[in-house]
């Protein structure tokens, strides 16, 4: 039995890496998987807050690497789910406290006892990112349907391909169907065309996500929000299930037919 190590990264900051990590951890654990979420954002830790586990931290990842505690001692068990753990980042250190080999070693030690290790990567493409990607078997790229976020995602996908970690899969976060319908936001097909990688999930914009982040109770705990359901769909896809993508209304069906007729017309010319 050996865990799959999945790194969640994005290049650009603020697109929702930590939210995705927390919610996927919850969704997978609710489906009976043994999961460790690992916060690799040394110095700017957030994953503990989103999971509501901040006040339970005794040791952290840097303590493990520097030999101040055993790995098991640093794992924080979730207060709601038996099989969900957090390996927190150190808040008082920075990215240089960790090397890629350290991450690989820690993950290898955890592999035996779990099904999934989810690594929350820091933003950027520097050492912190490299540490987070080094142990990964698979990589999930989080982006927003915005040109700048997509451009950064493209950069990161290129780096991951160069590391031989591919193919990365894409999560489009904070999609606003209303804006897409009006043509004011990139739609899913445009993002996919720009990035040319496989999609594993689309998370619609949902205010309950923000509330949940502040209260330390990720939306994936309940099944009654759009975003919560989207996270569970990604978890199921990670576990190998075929889950169709929910029809988020996009350019408008009529619009598409119209476009298609037009292009056919051009062809005849």
């Amino acid at each position: 039995m050996s865990a799959r190590v999945i790194t969640i990264t994005s290049g650009k900051g603020g697109v929702g890496k930590t939210t995705v990590t927390a919610n996927l951890g919850v969704a997978l654990a609710m489906r009976g998987q043994r999961v460790v979420t690992i916060d690799a954002d040394i110095g700017l830790r957030n994953l503990d807050v989103m999971l509501g586990l901040e006040n339970r931290i005794v040791y952290d990842l840097v303590d493990v690497v520097e030999g101040r505690c055993r790995l098991r001692q640093a794992l924080v068990r979730d207060k709601r789910l038996q099989e969900l753990y957090l390996l927190p980042a150190a808040q008082t250190r920075d990215k240089s406290a960790l090397r890629a080999e350290d991450m690989v070693r820690v993950c290898n030690e955890l592999r035996e006892s779990f099904d999934f290790l989810l690594i929350d990567s820091p933003a950027g493409i520097e050492q912190g990112f490299r540490n987070a990607v080094a142990p990964a078997d698979e990589v999930l790229i989080v982006t927003n349907p915005e040109v700048a976020a997509v451009r950064d995602a493209d950069r990161v996908i290129g780096l991951i391909e160069a590391e031989g970690k591919g193919p990365a899969r894409l999560i489009i976060n904070r999609l606003k169907p209303e804006l897409v319908r009006r043509g004011d936001m990139l739609d899913t097909s445009a993002v996919l065309e720009l990035l040319a990688i496989d999609l594993i999930g689309i998370i619609p914009e949902d205010e309950t996500v923000i509330v949940a982040a502040n209260t330390g109770r990720p939306v994936a705990f309940t099944d009654n929000s759009l975003a919560g359901r989207a996270f569970h769909n990604i978890a199921r896809r990670l576990m190998g299930e075929e889950v169709p993508f929910a029809p988020i209304k996009e350019p408008g069906f009529l619009g598409r037919i119209f476009r298609w007729m037009r292009s056919e017309g051009e062809e005849q010319r």
Binding site: I125, R151, D152, D154, R155, G158, L159, E161
Partner: peptide
């Protein structure tokens, strides 16, 4: 023979042939 992505730079004194897309950036 691959997608050339944002941040990647291909430099060569002769001809360059890309079989794939060259992304913005």
């Amino acid at each position: 023979e691959r997608t050339v992505r944002s941040g990647q730079r291909i430099e060569h004194p002769g001809d360059v042939i890309v079989i794939g897309d060259v992304h913005a950036g």
